[in-house]
Amino acid sequence: WFFVCLMVETLFFMQVVAENMLGDKKVTVVFVLGGPGSGKGTQCSNIVEHFGFTHLSAGDLLRAEIKSGSENGTMIENMIKEGKIVPSEVTIKLLQQAMIKNENDKFLIDGFPRNEENRAAFENVTKISPAFVLFFNCSEEEMERRLLGRNEGRVDDNIETIRKRFKVFVESSLPVIEYYDAKDKVKKIDAAKPIPEVFEDVKAIFAPYAKVIV
């Protein structure tokens, strides 16, 4: 009887998790893409404050896993140092866990998918297609200046790794943007402008998601 109860409880838990991700719960996902230093994180904070989204940064989730000291974290750290892309299943699992735990139904996913394989895997695993892609378009010169100007103690903020990350972005992430652009799902932002001006452009795009004050 104990094992029957345990099995029923486990199946119920699995069903609840599936419903959170795939079932009756309508989840709005916006992918936020742009080169390293294009200002994605800053603008995501503004969107959270003004439009009630939950911000899930793929990079932050990966860095938290590194800090946990797990074997998975060590593998992630080595790949980031080399400017490589972390395997899809690792990042998707972290994103999925974060979405399941959160009661909100509107998510900004920042810095993911980084390549076509990421994109296909995310849609296949979660059965979620983004409402749209917010693309922060910025020159490499400006992004490099910004990254070298900040001091956050991040292992990936040195000139050699920064340039590797630019190369990876151009080769891997631009095809994702082109894929969604063909579906008329890309909202392009001129991210080289000052932060307040960039947010004015962002606000115009997110107007349909404005918080309703009762």
Rank of each mutant, 00 (worst) to 15 (best):
A18I: 14
N151T: 03
R165G: 04
I195W: 08
M143F: 15
M7Q: 14
C5M: 11
L108F: 02
I205R: 08
T10K: 09
F53A: 00
D190M: 00
A191R: 06
Y179R: 14
Y179E: 13
K84I: 03
V4M: 13
G69I: 00
G37P: 13
H50E: 13
E116G: 11
V202H: 04
L11W: 12
L147D: 10
M79Y: 05
E103D: 09
I80T: 01
P130Q: 03
M99G: 02
R146E: 07
V212P: 06
I177N: 05
K40D: 06
D156H: 09
E142R: 02
F169V: 01
G83Y: 00
V48A: 10
A207F: 02
R154K: 04
E89I: 05
R119I: 02
Q96S: 11
I205C: 07
G35K: 08
R165I: 01
D60I: 09
L56Y: 02
S88W: 01
A210P: 05
G83D: 00
L6H: 14
C138Q: 02
T28A: 15
E19G: 03
G111F: 03
A98H: 06
G111Q: 10
G41M: 14
P194C: 10
Y179C: 11
N72K: 15
K67Y: 01
R119D: 11
L62S: 04
N104M: 06
K167P: 00
H50G: 12
P36S: 07
